[in-house]
Design a protein around this nucleic acid. Structure first.
Length: 655
RNA sequence: GCUGGCGUGGCGCAAUUGGUAGCGCACCUGUCUUGUAAACAGGCGGUUGUCGGUUCGAGUCCGAUCGCCAGCUCCA
C-alpha cells in the first residue's frame, strides 16, 4: 500500500502513474463506486497487481463500462443462486442495455415465484461479500473443472474464434482462458464460472438489482439448438437509480399505444379479423386522415404524382420483380382463380414499375416521382405481430422515383431533406441516419461502379444533413444501398422511420427504359422511398411519442366546450359553431354531468383546449380557457379565443 | 414459428380445495346542475375466446384451436 499515491478523479485527469507495485484494490479500496480499473488502456479487475510505471484509471460504476461490469457480476450471482436450488447447466450471462441475463438449461421452466426466491438467494450471496477472483487456466484444466457444464465446454472449444454477435463473446476471450472463483471470507470456493471478466471486487458491490422476467432463448441464438431458459435482471449502482429505472418502465408502459389506442378510442384489433389487422375508429380516423392529408399536400408541393394500384395481382408479377419465390414465405398464400394464382401484394414497387412501363418515356419526364398510400399484406409470423408497429396489413406511404443516373445525387439530397422536414412537422426532431452498404460478398448484384456512386451520393446527402451517421457495412439489400432515418421519441427510444433505397435490380427485370436526348434508349435509376414506413406504425410511434396528447393540429378533438351548467349549453354551442366555421374540430359536452366531471373526462381524453363558460363569461361575451396541462386563462373574449385557437392549430411544430 | 404466461359483460378487475358468475367505470332512465379532475338513485348488460373431453357438477381440470403478452428467431 503506497500512501504517497493520490488518484485524482472527478475530472479529466483520472489517470495516475503508479510508482510502485500494488494492486487496484489498495488504490481504490475505500471507494465502492470504483468497480474496476483501466491499466495501460486495458480493463482489469481491481485485485490484479500493478507494476511501477503502469498508468491506472478508475472505472466507476456509473460509467457505461462500470455498469456493464456491475451487471455482468450480478449475472454471476444469479447463476450461483440458480445452481444452489436447481439442477441447471450454464449457458451465457452477459450484461445488456439496462441489465443482464443468464441462460440456463433446466428441466422445468422458472416461474415468477422462482424469480422471487432467486432474488432472495442472490441477496444472501451479496451479503456474503464473496470475492471475485480471476484465475488463468489451461484448456485441459478448464475442461476438467467444467466437465459438468456442456455449454461451457462448447465455449472452450470456440476459444479464439470470432464471437457471436449476441454478447456471448464476454465469456471467452481470444487469448487465455480464465475462470472466476467466488471466494467466501474463509477462502472456500462458493462457485465458479468460465468468464473473461472483469468483475467487481466482491458481491457486496451489487447494491440494487431486480429480476425482471424469464423467457426462452436458443443456445447461441440458433433455432436448431437447444432452447434454454433466460432469466433477465437489472442492476444499478444505487437503489435510487433502480427505482428511477422502474419508474421509466412504468412511464413507457403508460405510453403503450395499444393501451392508449383503446383508452382514446383510436383503433382496435378485432379477433374476428385475425392477428395483425387493425381497424381505425372515428377518432383514430380523424388522426390518420389529418396526418395523411398533410403528407399528401407536402407530396404535391414536392412534385410527386399520385397513383393507385390494386391490392392483389397474378403472381407472375412478383416473379418478374424477383420477389417470388424468395419472399414467398412472408407473403400471404396464393389464391386460385380461373387457372391463375393471385397474391395479395406485399410491396407496391412492381405495380409502379408497370405504370412507368405503360408507355414510352422521355428523359423530359424525369425524375418521375410516383406516390401512393399503398396497402400491402405480409405474413408476419404469429409471434412477431405487435400492436400497430408490426402488423400483417399496412399502408405504406410508398414512392418510387425514376430518374437518370445523373439526377440521382440531386434526388437523394432533396429526398433526405424532404423526409427530415416532414418528420419534424410531425413532432419528431431527434434523428440519426444509418447507411447500409455492400461488402465484398457476391450476394450483391449490379455494377460495382453504380454501387460506389450511389453510396457516395447517399453519404453526401447524409453528411449534408448534419446528422449522426452510423455505418452498416454489408447491411444493404442485394439490389442496392440504402439510408434509413432513425428517430428517437420523447423518452429516448429509437424507431426506424424512413428508408431511401437504391434499386439496381427492378429496372432491368421490368425492362424499364426512357428515350434520352440523343435518341438512345436508357435504363432509369430507381429509388424506393417510404417516409413513415407504414401509416399504422407511424401512428403507433406518434401515439407513444406524445403519450396520446397529440399536438393541436393532430388531435382528434381540438376543442371541447364545457358549460358550467346546462343553462350555458347554447352559449357554448354558438361559440363552437364559429370555431367549426373556422375549421376547428370542436365538441360541446352537453351531457348531464357536472362541470367537474366534464373537465375530468376531457382531461382523460387529452383534448388540447377546453373552453369553459358560465354566468361571468356569458355576461362578458368571453370564455375561460383551460389547457390540458392544467394552465388556465379566464375571461378571454370569444373572438380572441377563436383567433388563438386557429393560430395554434396552424402551427404544426407546436406541441 | 419456438418457450413460457394469459383470455371472465365495451374497459379495468373479483370469484374459498371444481358446486350453476360479482364489483367499479362506461352505457340507459330518473332526480339534479353556476366555476376547474368523479352529484345521487335505479336499470340494462356476461353461460367466463371457440370446439371437444373428464366429472353428478367446470370460469376453475385435460386436449385442440383462435387471439393476446414477454422473450427468442425473423423483419426484403
Amino acid at each position: 500500500m503506497s500512501s504517497s499515491l493520490t488518484v485524482v478523479r472527478g475530472d479529466s485527469s483520472h489517470q495516475q502513474v503508479i510508482e510502485q507495485t500494488t494492486t487496484g484494490l489498495d488504490l481504490f479500496s475505500d471507494d465502492r463506486t470504483v468497480v474496476a480499473m483501466r491499466v495501460n488502456g486495458e480493463v482489469r479487475d481491481l485485485h490484479r497487481s500493478l507494476e511501477a510505471g503502469d498508468v491506472v484509471e478508475p472505472i466507476e460504476n456509473s460509467s457505461p463500462e462500470g455498469l456493464s461490469i456491475l451487471r455482468h457480476s450480478a449475472a454471476h450471482v444469479l447463476a450461483q443462486a440458480v445452481q444452489a436450488g436447481h439442477d441447471a447447466k450454464l449457458g451465457i450471462g452477459p450484461p445488456i442495455v439496462d441489465g443482464f441475463y443468464y441462460d440456463f438449461d433446466v428441466a422445468e421452466p422458472f416461474t415468477p415465484e422462482d424469480l422471487r426466491s432467486l432474488e432472495k438467494g442472490m441477496t444472501k450471496i451479496i451479503k456474503e461479500r464473496q470475492r471475485f477472483v480471476r484465475r488463468v487456466v489451461a484448456d485441459d484444466e478448464a475442461r476438467t473443472e467444467l466437465s459438468d457444464e456442456p455449454y461451457k465446454l462448447e465455449l472452450i472449444g470456440l476459444k479464439g474464434h470470432a464471437s457471436t454477435d449476441d454478447g456471448s463473446d464476454v465469456e471467452v476471450g481470444a487469448g487465455e482462458l480464465t475462470i472466476y472463483d467466488n471466494l467466501r471470507r474463509d477462502g472456500s470456493v462458493a462457485w465458479k464460472d468460465l468468464c473473461r471478466g472483469p468483475h467487481v471486487p466482491h458481491t457486496g458491490y451489487i447494491q440494487a438489482f431486480s429480476l425482471m422476467r424469464v423467457s426462452a432463448a436458443y443456445w447461441r441464438g440458433d433455432q436448431a439448438n437447444a432452447q434454454l431458459q433466460r432469466v433477465y435482471g437489472t442492476a444499478w449502482p444505487t437503489r435510487e437509480e433502480l427505482k428511477q429505472y422502474q419508474t421509466r418502465l412504468e412511464e413507457a408502459a403508460k405510453r403503450d399505444h395499444r393501451k392508449l389506442g383503446n383508452e382514446l378510442d383510436l383503433f382496435s384489433f378485432p379477433d374476428e379479423l385475425g392477428s395483425g389487422l387493425a381497424v381505425f375508429h372515428p377518432k383514430g380516423g380523424v388522426l390518420r386522415k389529418t396526418m395523411e392529408d398533410y403528407s399528401r399536400q407536402r407530396h404535391v408541393d414536392a412534385g410527386y404524382e399520385f397513383v393507385y394500384t390494386p391490392h392483389i395481382s397474378k403472381d407472375g408479377l412478383f416473379h418478374t420483380s424477383g420477389h417470388l419465390p424468395y419472399y414467398a414465405d412472408t407473403m400471404f398464400p396464393p389464391m386460385e382463380l380461373e387457372g391463375a394464382e393471385y397474391r395479395l401484394k406485399a410491396m407496391n414497387c412492381p405495380m409502379h414499375n408497370l405504370i412507368f412501363a405503360s408507355r414510352g418515356r422521355s428523359y423530359r419526364e424525369l425524375p418521375l416521382r410516383l406516390f401512393e398510400f399503398g396497402s400491402v399484406y405480409r405474413y408476419e409470423r404469429s409471434g412477431v405481430v405487435h400492436g400497430l408497429t408490426r402488423v400483417r396489413g399496412m399502408t405504406q406511404d410508398d414512392s418510387h422515383i425514376y430518374c437518370t443516373q445523373e439526377q440521382v445525387p440531386g434526388e437523394l439530397k432533396g429526398l433526405l431533406d424532404f423526409v427530415l422536414n416532414l418528420l419534424r412537422d410531425y413532432g419528431l426532431n431527434d434523428f440519426y441516419l444509418e447507411l447500409s452498404t455492400r461488402d465484398d460478398s457476391d450476394k450483391f448484384i449490379g455494377d460495382p461502379e453504380d454501387w460506389e456512386r450511389a453510396t457516395e451520393s447517399l453519404r453526401e446527402a447524409a453528411i449534408e444533413s448534419g446528422l449522426e451517421l452510423v455505418p452498416d457495412p454489408g447491411g444493404a439489400a442485394f439490389y442496392g444501398p440504402k439510408i434509413s432515418v432513425q428517430a428517437r421519441d420523447a423518452i429516448g427510444r429509437s424507431w426506424q422511420m424512413s428508408t431511401i433505397q437504391m434499386d439496381f435490380n427492378q429496372p432491368a427485370r421490368f425492362g424499364l427504359q426512357y428515350t434520352a436526348a440523343d435518341g438512345s434508349r436508357q435504363q432509369p435509376a430507381m429509388i424506393h422511398r417510404a417516409l413513415f414506413g407504414s401509416i399504422e406504425r407511424f401512428l403507433g410511434v406518434l401515439t407513444e411519442h406524445y403519450a396520446g396528447a397529440f399536438p393541436p393540429w393532430l388531435a382528434p378533438v381540438q376543442v371541447i366546450g364545457i358549460p358550467v351548467a346546462s343553462e350555458f349549453d347554447d352559449y357554448l354551442l354558438a361559440v363552437a359553431a364559429r370555431l367549426r366555421q373556422a375549421g376547428v374540430r370542436v365538441e360541446v359536452d352537453t351531457s348531464d354531468d357536472r362541470m367537474q366531471k366534464k373537465i375530468r373526462t376531457a382531461q382523460k381524453s387529452k383534448v388540447p383546449y377546453m373552453l369553459i363558460a358560465g354566468g361571468d363569461d356569458a355576461a362578458a361575451g368571453a370564455v375561460s380557457f383551460r389547457f390540458r396541462d392544467g394552465r388556465q386563462n379566464n375571461g378571454v373574449p370569444i373572438q380572441q379565443a377563436i383567433d388563438e385557437i386557429v393560430e395554434s392549430i396552424a402551427d404544426r411544430r407546436q406541441v
